[in-house]
Design a protein around this nucleic acid. Sequence first.
DNA 1: TAGAATGGTATTCATATGAATACCATCACG
DNA 2: CGTGATGGTATTCATATGAATACCATTCTA
Lengths: 210, 210
Amino acid sequence: MNTITARQQEILTFIQQTVEQKGYPPSLREIAGHFGMVGTRGAFKHVAALIRKGHLRKGPGARALEVISQSQTARAVQSKSAGRAIPILGRVAAGQPILAEENLLGHLTVDPSLVRGREAFLLKVKGKSMRDAGILDGDLVLVKRQADADSGEIVVAMVEGEATVKRLIKKRGSLILQPENPDFDPIVITEKDASFQILGKVVSLIRPVV
Amino acid sequence: MNTITARQQEILTFIQQTVEQKGYPPSLREIAGHFGMVGTRGAFKHVAALIRKGHLRKGPGARALEVISQSQTARAVQSKSAGRAIPILGRVAAGQPILAEENLLGHLTVDPSLVRGREAFLLKVKGKSMRDAGILDGDLVLVKRQADADSGEIVVAMVEGEATVKRLIKKRGSLILQPENPDFDPIVITEKDASFQILGKVVSLIRPVV
DNA sequence: TAGAATGGTATTCATATGAATACCATCACG
DNA sequence: CGTGATGGTATTCATATGAATACCATTCTA
């Protein structure tokens, strides 16, 4: 049941590659066209078989194919010897894509176990506001992209057009960005502050001494 | 022209996250629904603006949105990149080869720029004696193997059968291992202490948060 | 203060797309 | 030797989806 035919593997690989390359899966007609088929029925049957065998998932609507096991195993295979190149950001300007080129300081290869699966970036920390959490000026924090976080977690957030690293405290609906240094004051986020945004959660730290 | 409004950034982030999570972009109606809009026109205009500003690309057919700058760097993130697998040591027992198997906790892939050329290992730090240097319990220090070091550098040294991380101070021929925490006392090395040995110099630090 | 850009509601339309029906060829397998 | 699974062609159909027209409120800027 879990066994897959050679032809089905071809189809699956093509779908996988298209998703990897363009960010969205091919339509049935694109699959059929790529393999020289005339109608869509052939491609449809293969896709149906792959869904039945658990290699694909189908969401509602058009072009809603999600690749299941293939990408997961591919990721697990990568985790052995190779690393992932993570972009290093110096600053994060408001109203721009986070990974805008002018902010990019370079890339650093990081062990996949530190960034399992998700989009991530490295941010060069400025200032000493998180000193007592062992995060010093110049450290690189590895940030997993997510729009929310749990209370007590250390996050990177946009406040007044600046990306800042603080501990997030949720208290009766209000948000506090808590520094880990008595010389600094907490930042309280009022509900209506639209400029506030959580960019991600700090999942690791890398300090290039010297 | 390249500037993006806050709302557009929200939309772009949502598209980005959906692609990242499911492997295909949301439809206009899914975007509209997620932001509480009624029709598709609002979402459509934002998408059009993002295409015009170069942050998205539109292929032929339905649900064929490709995220440009964001996903390209995100894709670069996914790309494999060469790193060096560095052994992680939990403890270092006296009178044994440093890399003895029983001490090995595993391996971590590290960017080559952090360990240029030399033999290196990662040591899992125990205790809080280097707290004020931002080295916390559980951190991994990346150690470059060398038998000596300059005064002021942070080193890993064997003292009384234990590997310890301290700042090395050289003073008129005598050696001091200086903690970075007032709760701990410096260790003074007498010249004839044969059990003392510098294992290497700390060149980087990696903290796997959580 | 006029005008452009943003960010919408309400509605409609053309079509790309998934899915179905009917039929067929090949191959493995008991 | 029949039977089921695979892998198709040819054709049709319902609809999810992108895109358009018309209109409006707000904000920012020249």
